[in-house]
C-alpha cells in the first residue's frame, strides 16, 4: 500500500471515530454553536444600532450583517479547542496511552477538528442559507473564484489556530495555567482578529499593531475575502503571505514546545 493510501485509511478511521463520539454528544455541540453565535450576534446588534441609517467607517447596516455572518461561519471553521484537551491530557496523564500509540497524538486532534467543524459549520451554513432566503442583506454574490480563495484562506487560518492552540496547550508541561494563557490570547484576539469589529474600525495605532502580528490572518483576512472587501492582487498576496509566514512560525513554536515538553514530562497515573 502506498504511503498516501495508508494515511488516507488512518485519517478515515480517526475521523469516523471522532464523528461517532461527537454524535453521542450532539446536544453539547449545539450548545457550543449557540455560544459561538451569540457573541457575533450581540456585536452585530450594537453596530446595527450605532450605524443607524448612515455609515460607520464605510460600513452600513447591511455590511455589518454580512461581516458578522461571515465571521460566525469562519470562526466555527477555524476554532480550535485543543489547548483545553492537551491541558487535561497532560495534567491527568491521558497523554500516556496516546504516546504509546504508533501515531502522533496530533493526528487524533486534527481528525477531531475536522469532524467537529464539519458538523458545527454545517449547522451555521444551514442557518445562514435560511436567513439569506428572508433577508437580502446577508446574501453573497455567486462568485466561485472568491469562494475558492476563501476556502484556501480558511484552511490556512484553521491550521494556524490549531497550532496556536496546540502549542499553548503544551505549556501545561510547565504550568497549570495553560488554558488561562489561551484565554488571554482570546481576549487580545477579540480586538486584533476582528471579532468585535471589522479591523477598519479600530484606531489606526491598534490596527497597526494587529498588522504586524498573526491575529488578522486567523480570522479577519478570510472573513474579508468572503465578504469581498479584499481589493487588488497586492492585498490578496499580502494576506496569503502573512498567513503562510505565521503558520510556519507557529508550527516551529509547536515543535519546540513538543520536544522540550516531552523531555520534561514525568507521566502521571497509570
Amino acid at each position: 500500500m502506498s504511503r498516501l493510501a495508508e494515511w488516507a485509511r488512518r485519517y478515515g478511521a480517526l475521523i469516523r471515530n471522532a464523528w461517532l463520539v461527537d454524535l453521542q454528544y450532539r446536544a453539547s455541540i449545539v450548545l457550543w454553536i449557540i455560544w459561538g453565535v451569540t457573541e457575533p450576534t450581540i456585536a452585530l446588534g450594537i453596530w446595527w444600532a450605532i450605524a443607524g441609517d448612515g455609515q460607520v467607517g464605510g460600513y452600513a447596516r447591511a455590511d455589518f450583517a454580512r461581516y458578522f455572518f461571515a465571521l460566525m461561519l469562519v470562526n466555527q471553521l477555524t476554532i480550535a479547542w485543543d489547548s483545553w484537551y492537551l491541558d487535561r491530557w497532560i495534567r491527568e496523564g491521558d497523554l500516556n496511552y496516546r504516546l504509546a500509540r504508533p501515531l502522533h497524538p496530533a493526528h487524533e486532534a486534527v481528525a477531531d477538528n475536522i469532524a467537529y467543524k464539519a458538523r458545527s459549520a454545517g449547522v451555521i451554513l444551514v442557518v445562514w442559507l435560511v436567513a439569506a432566503l428572508v433577508w437580502p442583506a446577508v446574501r453573497l454574490p455567486l462568485a466561485p473564484g472568491r469562494w475558492a480563495l476563501t476556502a484556501l484562506a480558511v484552511v490556512l487560518a484553521a491550521a494556524m489556530r490549531f497550532f496556536i492552540s496546540f502549542a499553548t496547550g503544551l505549556l501545561a508541561f510547565w504550568t497549570t495555567r495553560a488554558t488561562a494563557i489561551m484565554g488571554l490570547h482570546g481576549g487580545v484576539a477579540l480586538f486584533l482578529s476582528g471579532r468585535i469589529a471589522p479591523l477598519a474600525l479600530l484606531p489606526p495605532a491598534v490596527a497597526g499593531v494587529a498588522a504586524v502580528l498573526w491575529f488578522p490572518y486567523m480570522l479577519a483576512f478570510p472573513v474579508n475575502l468572503l465578504t469581498g472587501s479584499v481589493h487588488g492582487t497586492a492585498a490578496l498576496l499580502h494576506g496569503f503571505a502573512g498567513q503562510i509566514v505565521w503558520l510556519a512560525l507557529w508550527v516551529g513554536a509547536y515543535r519546540l514546545a513538543w520536544t522540550r515538553g516531552l523531555r520534561r514530562y514525568g507521566a502521571v497515573g497509570g
Binding site: Q24, A27, L31, I34, V37, T38, E39, I42
Partner: peptide, 20 residues
Amino acid sequence: FVSVENLSVLFDAVYEGARY
C-alpha cells in the same frame, strides 16, 4: 438532556447580552 454536561455554556451565551 442527560448527556449535556456543558449546560452552563448556555448561561454564558445568554448573559453576554447583559453587557450593554
